[in-house]
Simulated assay, not measured.
Amino acid sequence: MANENKRDYYEVLGVAKDASDADIKRAYRKLAAQYHPDVNHDPGAEDKFKEINEANEVLSDPEKRKRYDQFGFAGVDPSFNAGAGGSPFGGGSPFGGGFGDFGDLGDLFGSFFGGGGGRSARRSNPNAPVRGEDISASVDLTFEEAVFGTEKEVGASRIENCDQCHGTGAAAGNSAETCLRCHGTGTVRTQQNFMGMVMQSDSVCPDCHGSGKVIKNPCPRCKGKGKVRRAFKTRVHFPAGIDDGQTLRVRGEGCDGFNNGGRGDLLVTVRVRKHPILTRQGQDLYCEMPITFAQAALGAEVEVPTIDGKVRYSIAEGTQTGTTFRLRGKGVPYVNDTKKRGDQFVTVVVETPTRLTREQKELLRQFDQSAEESNQPKKKRFFDFFKK
C-alpha cells in the first residue's frame, strides 16, 4: 500500500489523535473482530483487516506512535530513505510479511472465537486448547417473575464446530497438514540489515495465519474455518430476587473452543419491567397508598397491596400525609437466601376530595368552623410563628 494511498492510522481505527492506549486497543479489537477474514467473507474484508492491523501495530507502540505523530508515514516506513531495507529512525519494519505482525492476533482470534489462550500460548503452541468465547443475551422479566423466580427459554447465536468436518476445516477424507513455511510454529522470522547489523523479527505466518496448519481441501460448508455461526435456544433458571441489570452466567452455553478447548459461557442480562404500584430498592419495596380524610382523622382498617396479595393494616387515628409504615417480610427474597426477605414500606397520602356536592361542601364548612386549635397543632404552630 503506497504511502500516498494510505489513510491516516487514527482515521483507520476511528479514534482521535489524543486517544488513550485503552481507546486504541478497544477500537482495534472491535474492528479486527468485524473484518477478520475467518469470519468476514465479504470482498475487501481481508484488505481492510490488513489496514486495521497495520494501524494498530504503529499506534499501539509508544515509540512508533511518537515517530508517526512527528514524521507521518515516513517515520514508520522501513523503505523510506533506508538504503538496504532499514529504517532511518532505528529498529526494523513495524510490519512483517504477509498480513504483518499483528501483535495480539492470537489473543484477538482466541477472544473472538474463544477467550483465553493468550499471545505467548498461541505462539509457542498454536495447537494448544483454547476455551470458547463467552456470548451475551438479554431477557425481559415481569416484576413478579424477578421477585419469585422463573424459568425461560433464551435465544442467542454462537460459533460452533462445523457439523460436516467436526471442526477440522478439512473436507471429508482429508485433514490439515503442517504448514511448510513455518513448520507448524505459526510464526516466521525475517531478517533485515541496518548499518551493518542484522535485525530479526517474528511475525504471523502468512500461509497458515498463525495456526501452524494448512488445509488444501477445505470443507465446503465452513470453507475451511472449522466453525459456523448457529442460532440456538436454551432453558435458563432465574432465581427469586434477581434485579434489573443483573447478569446470569450459564456455564458451557457459549462458543465452541479450539483444539478441544471447551465451550465458553452464556451471559444473560435481566431487564425487569416496572410495576404499576410498587418500586424496588435492593430487597425492599415501596409504594404510596391514598386514604380518605375521614380514614386519616378517625383511623381505619385498610387493605394494603403487596407482592403476595392484600394484607390488613390498622391506620391510627390522626394519621398525617407522608406517614410511612413498614410491613416486615413483604419485600423481595435474597438471591442467596430465599428464606430471608426485605420489607415493604407504605407511605400514606391523604387524598383531598374533589367534585363535592353542595351538601358535602356545607358539611365541610360546618366541620371547619367547629374545629379548634387543638385539632390542628401544625396550623397553630405555623401562625404562632408569624405572631411572634
Rank of each mutant, 00 (worst) to 15 (best):
V272A: 11
N5P: 06
G261S: 10
S175G: 11
G241M: 14
V250Q: 08
S111L: 14
E151N: 05
V349G: 15
Q320I: 15
A297C: 09
V348P: 05
A55H: 00
D69S: 03
G254R: 00
P276D: 14
N161P: 06
C219H: 08
G261Y: 04
K339T: 14
V154M: 11
A16H: 14
L13M: 06
R381N: 15
E144S: 14
R263Y: 11
T324D: 12
D8L: 03
A146G: 01
G106I: 08
V335I: 10
L364D: 01
R235L: 08
D104Q: 12
E301R: 13
D244M: 07
D69R: 02
G132R: 09
D134I: 07
T357Q: 04
P239T: 02
A316F: 13
Q246S: 13
K387F: 11
G331Y: 04
G210L: 05
V311D: 13
V139M: 11
E46D: 06
S157R: 04
V348T: 12
E362F: 11
L267D: 06
A300Q: 02
I215K: 00
L356H: 01
K388A: 09
E303S: 08
T292V: 01
H275V: 06
G110F: 06
G90S: 03
E160K: 12
P206E: 08
G261H: 10
K378D: 13
R67A: 15
V311C: 14
A156E: 13
C208E: 02
G212M: 01
A32K: 12
D384T: 00
G149A: 07
C182I: 03
E303T: 10
G210N: 04
K223P: 05
N5D: 11
R249I: 10
L298F: 08
F102N: 15
G117M: 08
T234N: 11
K213N: 08
P305D: 11
Q360H: 01
K223D: 12
T142E: 04
F345D: 04
G97V: 07
S87H: 07
E373Q: 00
L298Y: 06
P126W: 02
T279C: 07
I52L: 04
G331L: 03
A2P: 15
F194L: 04
A32M: 15
R158T: 12
L298N: 09
D42C: 09
R235F: 07
N174R: 07
L180R: 13
D8T: 01
G103Q: 06
G103A: 09
G106E: 01
V39M: 05
